[in-house]
């Protein structure tokens, strides 16, 4: 799925790095715990999280994760947006719960990493 398709399916809004909306995503990982995210190793991944602080972006930067969905109708902070933009990381804000967002993407063929 492309970022644009993902945003549409989740009734979400792309709030930064909009120029990369054609980027393709194959897999997803859902977690609010960055300690756990730091143990995964995968390409073309999208992170689904409800954690809204700058460490979410830092964690993605270290792992070369370039796509994030923020669930539960939470909003990225200005610091997050600035850092994400610097690193070409896309953020989609979505009104759904983590379970619902994960389920919709799974139905559309996005794969788990394990």
């Amino acid at each position: 799925m492309t970022i644009k398709e993902i945003a549409e399916s989740l009734e979400g809004e792309i709030v930064c790095s909009e120029k990369f909306t054609n980027r393709k995503v194959e897999k997803a990982f859902s977690s609010d715990l960055m300690s756990e995210v730091l143990t995964i190793d995968s390409e073309n991944l999208i992170l689904i999280t409800g954690l809204v602080n700058v460490q979410t972006i830092r964690t993605c930067e270290m792992l070369d994760i370039q796509n994030i969905i923020i669930v539960r109708n939470k909003k990225a902070t200005p610091e997050m947006l600035e850092l994400a933009e610097e690193n070409d990381i896309i953020i989609i804000q979505c009104p759904f719960s983590m379970f619902k967002a994960s389920g919709i993407l799974y139905q559309h063929g996005i794969k788990p990493i394990y």
Binding site: S35, T39, L51
Partner: peptide, 16 residues
């Protein structure tokens, strides 16, 4: 923990 850390995985992950 609010920052998304503190799960007791850090040192193990460094070692890995």
């Amino acid at each position: 923990r609010e920052m998304g850390f503190g799960a007791g995985m850090g040192l193990c992950n460094m070692n890995r």
